[in-house]
Amino acid sequence: PTPPYLKWAESLHSLLDDQDGIQLFRTFLKQEECADMLDFWFACSGFRKLEANEINEEKKVKLSKLIYKKYILDNNGIVSRQIKPATKSFIRDCVMKLHIDPAMFDQAQTEIQTMMEENTYPLFLKSDIYLEYT
């Protein structure tokens, strides 16, 4: 069978589908001071996966505010800098007006994913961290 680390080179999704891959990619991103991008990507997926029930409604409001505050509000943050202004205002409006929707972070997640696919992921595959691991 193909060793996991070779699969990681196939696509970003293959990498993010493996615990060890995520860990190594995170170590690399931390070194580049952009681990927040990965955390944000998973936070968006986790938020979308929250089931619709009464207990979760309060949780969703809290979480949407937390994600907004931690990653989007600060314009100098690594995540915020990669997200389009229109996407940021859309999320701000959702949070402010309590229009909490499972898909409210989807566009922002896509923008961060594109950034990783075009930039940090190819760099990771060429990095010492990955090459030493293989």
Partner: peptide
């Protein structure tokens, strides 16, 4: 603040693949 961090961390972890 701690519980806020926990909530966010829990959300992040919930989206990660489980150990194979």
């Amino acid at each position: 603040i701690d519980s806020e961090d926990d909530l966010l961390q829990e959300c992040i972890s919930s989206a990660m693949p489980k150990k194979k």
